[in-house]
Design a protein around this nucleic acid. Structure first.
Lengths: 151, 151
DNA sequence: CGATATTAGTTCGATATCGAATTAAAAGGG
DNA sequence: CCCTTTTAATTCGATATCGAACTAATATCG
């Protein structure tokens, strides 16, 4: 039954399509609420360090976001120029660096989070918590599968 | 119970996070298989015209993808320069244009689709069709909600 | 109708993003 | 140990992306 397979594949394409559009909506939503020259990846790095822990290396962060590492170099440079992060040498590896939040970075992340959260409230009641959790689970599985298939 | 609300909101943040990463993975996956200077949005426009119908205007397409219209101007210029689409005046509105696929554009889209589909086959068995459909449904709802909240 | 507001598309300048090449350090294998 | 390979980060050049300002055409409303 090759039609079944095609249909399955078609749905997956639609899923990617939808994901792209939502990503775009989310990016715009965030960036409207970020100061002047800041973009979503700037905030994402601050958030990542808060959630996963400071002292990560640039490659680790790049892998987590699945972006090329030179793209991250640029993002980190922007954050450092704004005094939101600090780069320190990596004691385990002289080629490498580690990334740390400054107090300003922590404060900025918290403020932005509060700001965006407030504006997100109207959306929440529309989203069934169970659906959110289930979707999250599936998307993680999808990501892991794609990641594995990347080789 | 404000903790419940915060938790719900936290899950939604994680969802956006995951969506961003998958979008990135999908983009890379596509662009590895696209010729030289072509990027995902180029393909997306060809695909959109095939699925939704030709003769769309740039603003319609921009709205469908939730990107600024000047970004689309640039994408369309690239496609036109490669002879994959054709711009015609809009008989209903002298400010506007309509976008049409050329034969080369149709052929290119089909070839790329086949190429990407083939490489996507290993991922398919990992994805429960029911889960894909359910996720798709939820994401559509999420998009519509965000779109409505955009005002 | 005529004035004003809105809409379609482009242009411009600034920044983001990426692939490819580069440098420096670490790892691995004879 | 050297030699080769891999890895971390940066640099460079090219293109993508976006906000803001602009032009031309259409819609709205008195």
């Amino acid at each position: 039954m090759p039609e079944k397979l095609d249909e399955h594949q078609g749905k997956l394409f639609e899923l990617f399509n939808e994901i792209g559009i939502i990503q775009q909506l989310g990016r715009a939503f965030f960036e409207e609420r970020l100061p002047d020259g800041m973009v979503l990846p700037h905030f994402s790095v601050l958030n990542h360090l808060t959630r996963v822990g400071e002292g990560r290396t640039p490659v680790q962060i790049a892998r987590a976001f699945q972006v090329p590492k030179n793209s991250l170099t640029h993002t980190l440079a922007g954050l450092e120029a704004r005094g939101l992060i600090e780069m320190r040498p990596n004691p385990k590896d002289k080629r490498s660096k580690t990334v740390w939040l400054t107090d300003a970075g922590r404060a900025f992340r918290a403020e932005t989070m509060a700001l965006v959260s407030a504006d997100m409230v109207p959306v929440l009641p529309e989203m069934e918590p169970d659906d959110v959790v289930r979707t999250l689970g599936f998307l993680r599985h999808l990501r892991e599968t794609m990641d594995r298939a990347r080789d």
